[in-house]
């Protein structure tokens, strides 16, 4: 890839469909593999994006994800119009979860999603406002 080249992908995430959650992350994973990007970087992006995607479905009634593939890094911007996160520091703690019982029975609600996103990315920012929504920005170096 030349420096000027970047690939942009956009995904609309529907808020009520658990069975389809993860499809956006899977298709990004496929695309990155096809581009021959280092498997370890691909795995990081796949895990971080999936956690963000599923959070949008469970906690924010869906949203949109932009992925930008640069020659030296991958940016992910996840934007939703959900309820926002009241206390980001608390939400970032392992084990903190407000997931309802119906999704806990599916295996969600360990309170590890946001910590995983932090762990598997090189940069991560959360902008959030109560009643307005949340934007999570993540970067993985290649």
């Amino acid at each position: 890839m030349a420096m000027s080249d970047e690939i942009r992908l956009r995904f609309e995430i529907s808020g009520d469909d658990f069975t389809r959650a993860g499809e956006a992350s899977s298709s990004v994973k496929k695309e990155l593999k096809k581009l021959g990007i280092d498997p370890q970087a691909v795995r990081k992006v796949a895990i971080a994006m999936y956690e963000g995607e599923i959070n949008m479905v469970i906690h924010a009634n869906g949203g949109a994800i932009d992925v930008v593939i640069h020659p030296d890094c991958i940016d992910m911007i996840l934007k939703d119009n959900g309820p926002g996160i009241e206390n980001v520091a608390l939400a970032m703690q392992e084990g903190y979860s407000t997931a309802p019982d119906n999704v806990r029975s599916l295996g969600f609600g360990a309170g590890m999603g946001l910590p995983n996103m932090k762990k598997y990315t090189d940069e991560m920012q959360i902008e959030t406002e109560r009643g307005v929504g949340t934007t999570v920005t993540m970067k993985v170096h290649i």
């Binding site: 069975t19 993860g22 992350s25 895990i47 999936y50 599923i54 599916l106 295996g107 609600g109 360990a110």
Partner: peptide
């Protein structure tokens, strides 16, 4: 717990669970 698996399972392992649903497939 799916996000525990996401964070802790290593690539190429056999993942044992008692929860079988489409979300486990994505994970």
């Amino acid at each position: 717990l799916l996000s525990m698996v996401m964070g802790r399972a290593k690539a190429d392992t056999a993942w044992i669970t008692v929860i079988s649903n489409v979300n486990s497939l994505a994970v």
